[in-house]
Nucleic acid binder design. Sequence first.
DNA 1: ACGTTAACCGGACCATAGTCCGGTTGTCCA
DNA 2: TGGACAACCGGACTATGGTCCGGTTAACGT
Lengths: 195, 195
Amino acid sequence: MSDEPLEIASRPPRERADAARNRERILTAAAELFARSGVEALTVDAVAQAAGVGKGTVFRRFGDKAGLAAALLDERERDLQRSVLSGPPPLGPGAPPRDRATAFLDAYLDYLAGHLELVRLSETASPGARYRIGAYRFWHRHLTILCADTPDPAHLAHLLLASVDAALVTALREEGYDWPRLRAGVRHLATALVS
Amino acid sequence: MSDEPLEIASRPPRERADAARNRERILTAAAELFARSGVEALTVDAVAQAAGVGKGTVFRRFGDKAGLAAALLDERERDLQRSVLSGPPPLGPGAPPRDRATAFLDAYLDYLAGHLELVRLSETASPGARYRIGAYRFWHRHLTILCADTPDPAHLAHLLLASVDAALVTALREEGYDWPRLRAGVRHLATALVS
DNA sequence: ACGTTAACCGGACCATAGTCCGGTTGTCCA
DNA sequence: TGGACAACCGGACTATGGTCCGGTTAACGT
């Protein structure tokens, strides 16, 4: 559970056929289970059973429950990463930092809006998971660069990401905040701080 | 676990003597256990056993593990609340909002520095616990008032508190951030946003 | 003093995340 | 094609937070 989400890496230990097949099965079963019965039905036992696989296999493949959720999100997340790296401005390169930062946070909130429960699961299933996940590192690096002209870019990047923490957003949603309100507040934050 | 930390309320259901005694025992045992063996030794079973009490009793008294941790912190937390309500400025009343906000966040970081593990436990032991705890509500109300001149005071108050989230601070500490650096970053945030 | 009652007690029980290891099997090389 | 070995498999096992309920007892009125 650290840093090897590279796809078909042909280098050192090629993945065995049964392993690959089981990973696929688990992912499929988990996705269906989630789609059908929501996040609370997504227990590791249930996923393993639905995939026709032992529970140990799930943990070996995905490390922990958070890792499983992260794997489920992987594809959507990559879309956003691609847009950030090489999409059109202001999300992609070419716009001033402040615009890119607000565009990113906007886009991230859209992403959250579509997958809040899963993201939350992937960030809270194990303590401190959020800050270890590869995706978080990516967003952090991105924002750190955009904050280059501030006193402590890396720290500020963390603080900006804190404003879209899935647990926080969940709590605010439950308190009645709608998405436009969340977007406006976060945008205000970024505008005041970046560049 | 909602809003009855008023002390000797003599009104409706006076607490039975055995209940009060057991609460005390549990708190004492938990504090000692934590002091001696750290937070990872603070399992509910261990606390119950050390207190000479059944596990059910612990949960009845404190709701869940987060509640137990919160109770352990209660006193220290009240100190800070008192200072905010009626201490000398800039923490207490009488200073301009921006100064009060930065003073509060500074003081809160001091509090965190002394009790990071317990605070984290009280905020992460159950999902969303942080935003339900009475103390969080108190800080939030305080900051909301200080943010009165901003577009969305309540939201901004949440975002400021997110910058001192125990889980975030833990992660940053593990990444090597020292306390002065954290203080400076948070102060920068508040300065840019309040008033 | 004593009976009534509601609150309390505790430990057996449940759900679920995560670990472990003996047996199995895919992969590679000769 | 066959053998050796590393990787993988799965389910029994552990740890721990949280629930439940039959028995107990403190508090209060008479």
